[in-house]
Nucleic acid binder design. Structure first.
Lengths: 148, 148
DNA sequence: TCTATCCGTAACCAGTATAGTTTCAGATCA
DNA sequence: TGATCTGAAACTATACTGGTTACGGATAGA
């Protein structure tokens, strides 16, 4: 199956939140994590590979091995995670170069880059204020409120 | 060809900017617009259909027909356009339901919805401040600066 | 040293979305 | 009546996401 949209950020945050509630001495395997996310271990390892390259997690192979956080959950912002999974720009420009013989055509892309860029900055600034520790806390709080 | 990312917002803003510099009596055809965007008229008409349903443009069939703005360019924000083209949420959640037997699994999606939602609001608030009139003005300004 | 476990990665596949293309019915105007 | 333009359907090529299988290499423990 595929349902097509990129879910790597959601999965990455899920993974990091799992690791954040785990003790240092008890790493989680990609198999276990896949069970919580409800997907397959290979996809989890692919995402963990991105997080590892960004220095957010580290792995240990072999019996009793698995993954653990490399940084305090309160120091990992969602922007860190967003950048770690390497998502492209939020808004795409034209696939093909617009017509350079047209006033709008030859200026639109630079202009869009400016305005789209401002919106993306606002988006990232908000992500920068949110941390894995907050996500974990809020997920725990969800348990307290009576189920609807 | 396809290059896959959704370019409808970029194309929609391009279209509206073209129409914004056009006089009321001289509508533009989808064929002409396609020439500026450098794509085919059918795709342009598909996007124009969305803008039309949102009340931003109107069409007239027949000889001398075409498209014109229905609202002042200064009153059309990029958020209006964004919503008109009906883009989905910026950040996807998991494709499959996470494991409900896991604390994180059963709370992560609601939690992500909250934090992702805040980032999306910030993004949209910025788009709401930008107008087609500004885009047109900035595209014209680009002409004045010496080419690099 | 041997074996079980776990990572790391490649390869391949299925499902889906974008947008290019062709085609044609219907509206409008001269 | 005929030229022009919209509106929409149908089909296609391309590319992306993530599911799946497979296997090499590292590690720990018996």
């Amino acid at each position: 199956m595929a349902t097509t949209r990129d879910t790597r950020l959601a999965v990455a945050v899920h993974i990091l939140t799992l690791l954040a509630q785990q003790s240092e001495e008890d790493p989680l395997t990609s198999e276990y994590i896949a069970g919580s996310v409800n997907t397959n271990p290979v996809f989890i390892r692919r995402v963990l590979g991105l997080l590892s390259r960004a220095g957010l997690v580290a792995s240990q192979p072999g019996v009793g091995g698995g993954w653990r956080l490399q940084r305090d959950a309160a120091s990992i912002s969602l922007l860190d995670v967003y950048e770690a999974v390497g998502a492209g720009p939020l808004l795409a420009l034209h696939h093909r170069q617009p017509n350079p013989d047209c006033l709008i055509g030859r200026n639109i892309q630079r202009t869009l880059l400016h305005y789209f860029g401002e919106a993306e900055v606002a988006f990232k600034q908000m992500l920068a204020r949110q941390t894995i520790a907050q996500v974990l806390e809020r997920a725990r709080e969800g348990e307290l409120s009576p189920p609807a």
